[in-house]
Design a binder for these strands. Structure first.
Lengths: 103, 103
DNA sequence: CGTGTAAGGAATTCTGACACG
DNA sequence: CGTGTAAGGAATTCTGACACG
């Protein structure tokens, strides 16, 4: 089991580039973070850094916003999706515990 | 045939992040560019932007520098490799022209 | 609620140059 | 040749706030 630092997940993109890539204003991007939809890392100096994965996420968010969905509901939906995945992983873990790792 | 904008080639990384990722100083990174080893894009404001591919390239360069190879020779070698690949593509193109695209 | 904007400040980056070796 | 550094300036980003709706 290793660190799997795929390029897609690496947080290296500034908010300015992010803005260009998504077509959203920096104001919008910061706001979606405030609403807990996005979680950039920070440089020592405090600057936001995003991943390509974040770019994709942000574009999905933009689509939902266009459909008139509120940030709260977008977040709600994402949290459910998150939970669903955690549940699946737990299940998989249990199966491994019972049948996989037996020594 | 499409624009194939893979994340790896997309120029989005600032020189500061580049420095962190490679462990080289920004001075070194700029110098290698001056010696034609590296070709970042520029933002409107003039800031350098690199790709993950550039990160890999830069780390290879760093290795060669450690071995005492001079920038000129590194460049020389890279240009040869470049030519080799162009040659292969040309060949492939010719083959396509003769046997592939026939109508 | 979601977004624009002006404000003041800090972090980041840029270039050209001098230094050392 | 390759790299550090101080210098002056410009571009980028940050936060908190006011505005509009």
């Amino acid at each position: 089991m290793e660190s799997k630092t795929s390029y897609k997940e690496k947080k290296v993109i500034s908010i300015g580039v992010m803005s260009e890539l998504t077509g959203l204003s920096v104001r919008q991007i910061r706001y979606y973070e405030e609403r807990k939809l996005l979680f950039p890392e920070r440089s020592k100096g405090g600057n936001r850094k995003y991943s390509f994965s974040d770019v994709e996420l942000l574009m999905e968010i933009a689509n939902e916003m266009e459909d008139g969905v509120q940030t709260f509901d977008i977040r709600q939906k994402r949290m459910k999706k998150e939970k669903e995945q955690t549940r699946k992983k737990m299940l998989k873990g249990q199966i491994n515990a019972q049948f996989g790792i037996r020594k």
